[in-house]
């Protein structure tokens, strides 16, 4: 019984790790994306640089994913 509760808690924690970091990535990308589109509108050559900046907030959710995987498979 206790083990089952423990497994459930780990699943909830993994879900929260993915969900909350996903939300944070979304919020960060909102401003970065808007700014990137604005910059590209003025100067199309900035596409490459803005693409890199767009990807940076993605790392937040990737960290969340790593933590979730660790929780599920290691703990």
């Amino acid at each position: 019984m206790a083990a089952e509760i423990g497994t459930g808690m780990v699943a909830i924690a993994a879900g929260l790790a993915i969900g909350l970091t996903g939300l944070a990535s979304g919020l960060a990308e909102r401003d970065v994306g808007a700014a990137a589109v604005g910059a590209i509108t003025e100067d199309a050559t900035l596409f490459g640089k803005t693409m890199v900046l767009m990807v940076l907030p993605e790392t937040i959710v990737i960290f969340g994913l790593v933590v979730a995987i660790l929780m599920i498979f290691v703990m």
Partner: peptide, 15 residues
């Protein structure tokens, strides 16, 4: 308002 979009465009114009 769309601060990020407008400010990015303006900064590009300024350059």
């Amino acid at each position: 308002g769309n601060y990020a979009y407008t400010v990015a465009r303006v900064k590009a114009k300024k350059s």
